[in-house]
Design a binder for these strands. Structure first.
Lengths: 113, 113
DNA sequence: TATAATTGTTTGCGTAATGCGTATGAAAGT
DNA sequence: ACTTTCATACGCATTACGCAAACAATTATA
């Protein structure tokens, strides 16, 4: 399940020791992840994704997309600044769009059934 | 960490029991995930993401800590990726949003004059 | 070549966390 | 009032995590 870890690490020319040090865990612990002997805790998994600057889904082999995406729901909850035509996007504008797109997606899914 | 689970479930009008049944686990087990009392195994996590048709990153509330300002027009032109509910935002969805918001802003400006 | 240093692999063990059944409480339906 | 559904909490057996340490394998340095 975590076969991609070895590639992510080797592409950075890091040893198991160095990777473990960067994660703040024991070498044998991280080695266990790569070998499939053990599974990381969710906390460790998040730190690994941060370290390799990719998504958890990519690490778990759930997608081929390495790119991290900016989640709009997150933008609503926090103060991440989006702008359109140089004008800051209000929460209301974003909220309307989220509702709008969710509705559109639901309709699309229904049509396909 | 798994605060989004309750919303994902409730937006589908599922009970804890029904969700647990769909996942093939005990109700108390799934309830433990939502309450934060327990953490799912990676296998369970993947099944949950599949059930709710979203990403593991979204379920884990993983935030990319880029605090930079993002211009939506640039998102259209480049490959800066947005997502909604853990599902990648298509260019078409983003384009509709831009047109929609521009129109709304124009109407609002006219009203204020 | 010999030797040290670095890297990768595996094991044993103490501890912590999981997952289930079950019990309890709350809310809703008949 | 009574039953049914729903949500939450607890006890406990089992699993498996994370670490240190030992071991093997590769590379570096003299």
């Amino acid at each position: 399940m975590l076969q991609r870890l070895a590639n992510l690490r080797k592409s950075r020319n890091w040893s198991l020791q160095e990777t473990a040090d960067r994660l703040g865990i024991a070498k044998s612990t991280y080695a266990g992840y790569e070998s499939g002997y053990r599974q990381p805790s969710l906390q460790a998994l998040l730190q690994i994704a941060n370290l390799f600057e990719t998504t958890v889904d990519y690490i778990l082999n759930r997608t081929n997309d390495k790119q991290e995406k900016l989640e709009l729901v997150e933008c609503l909850e926090s103060e991440i600044a989006l702008s359109l035509d140089g004008i800051p996007l209000t929460k209301e504008e974003l909220y309307d769009f989220i509702a709008f797109t969710r509705l559109k997606r639901r309709i699309k899914n229904n049509d396909e059934e």
